[in-house]
């Protein structure tokens, strides 16, 4: 059984039909990427999985259990972490408080403590800025905080929406190294990226989304060599 599966999922914003029958599967231990141009429906797919919007038709299942109508806070508790587009840092909470909120579902203080230490190992910068308000961090620091916060609850499936956005090349490398490290430690990853080149270099498999539909699904290496993908998303003529 797949860890996560979407079957013929349709999502709407009012009358806007954003997802038009998406089907995809993610197996345990994989890194899967979702690529596509602006407005293709990548973020909407993640929002549908994490319950921020509920599909009008179709089914989202986690470990075979239907989660399509579950509230987001319960989906989080079921093991899906979602680092949203635009980072979603709480601007008036400190870095420390943002991380503590990330561990909201963890009742064991010692465990939360360990996870916080782990985020500082990944991003030592955060430790230096513990008492700074989230809203005053630089864009890159906010991205680090968002990822660290997403890891606090030790998700089975971690979904990242454009983690490389606004980062310097060095930071992009760091973030993607981190993603691979987290994956090696057992988390399954669903990665949404504009930067298809980087995404395909770390992912095992990928889906290409276009105006609410999946048009290609293949292994990462095949996608890298796919002429459509090269032309549309890798900038290869």
């Amino acid at each position: 059984m797949s860890l996560l599966s979407l079957e013929n999922v349709h999502s709407y914003y009012g009358h806007i039909h954003a997802l038009k029958g998406i089907s995809l599967r993610i197996e345990k231990g994989e890194i899967v990427t979702l690529i596509g141009s602006n407005g293709a429906g990548k973020s909407t797919t993640l929002r549908t999985i994490s319950g921020l919007i509920h599909p009008k038709r179709g089914k989202v299942s986690l470990d075979g259990k239907d989660i399509s109508t579950m509230a987001p806070h319960l989906i989080v508790r079921a093991g899906i972490g979602h680092v949203p587009e635009g980072r979603g840092i709480f601007p008036r909470l400190t870095v420390k408080e943002n991380l503590e909120i990330g561990a909201y579902t963890i009742d064991d203080d010692a465990e939360a403590e360990r996870r916080m230490e782990y985020s500082f190992e990944l991003f030592p910068r955060l430790k230096e800025r513990l008492e700074q308000k989230g809203g005053t961090l630089s864009g890159g620091e906010q991205q680090m905080l968002a990822i660290a916060r997403g890891l606090m609850l030790d998700p089975t499936l971690l979904m990242l929406d454009e983690p490389s956005m606004g980062l310097s090349p060095v930071m992009v490398d760091l973030v993607f190294d981190t993603i691979q490290k987290v994956n090696e430690n057992g988390a399954t990853i669903l990665l949404v990226e504009q930067n298809a080149l980087v995404a395909l270099s770390v992912a095992h498999r990928g889906y290409v989304l276009q105006t609410g539909e999946i048009i290609i699904s293949d292994t990462a290496s095949n996608l890298r060599n796919d002429p459509t993908v090269q032309k549309a998303y890798l900038g290869v003529e």
Binding site: S50, P72, H73, V76, P84, G88, F90, R149
Partner: peptide, 12 residues
């Protein structure tokens, strides 16, 4: 500060 993100943190 941000209701949607709060729910993504497991907050009801």
């Amino acid at each position: 500060q941000d209701r949607a993100t709060a729910s993504l943190m497991g907050i009801d």
